[in-house]
């Protein structure tokens, strides 16, 4: 899965699950401050990313995630493991 493909999937989740407007989803966008996600959204997002990657995600792997780009990096790393 390329970074672009991960971004497309992530962008789809953010729009469908959390009703985030498409034009605000950029790699630089901060999940909590810019997109207004909260901790409940983060848990839901991790569940979705597990479905996407087929890998179990440990909560501390996502602790340092701040931006949409961070999520893409983390998912990319996870798939490379």
């Amino acid at each position: 899965m390329t970074r672009d493909e991960i971004f497309t999937a992530l962008s789809g989740y953010l729009q469908d699950l959390f009703e985030v407007p498409a034009d605000s989803i950029t790699p630089e966008a901060r999940l909590f401050e810019d997109l207004d996600l909260d901790s409940i959204d983060a848990v839901d997002l991790v569940v979705k990313l597990q479905d996407l990657t087929g890998r179990k995600i440990k909560p501390d792997q996502f602790k340092t995630v701040r931006t949409v780009g961070d999520v893409i990096d983390r998912v990319h790393d996870l798939l490379a493991e």
């Binding site: 959390f18 009703e19 407007p21 996600l37 909260d38 409940i40 839901d44």
Partner: peptide, 27 residues
């Protein structure tokens, strides 16, 4: 704010009385 950001504000305000499971996902 728009619907999405307002929904997150309200959800944050509900944290005072509701567990995470009792805070609505869809608005």
């Amino acid at each position: 704010l728009g619907a999405f950001r307002l929904s997150r504000r309200l959800r944050a305000a509900l944290a005072a009385s509701q567990d995470p499971a009792g805070r609505p996902r869809r608005w």
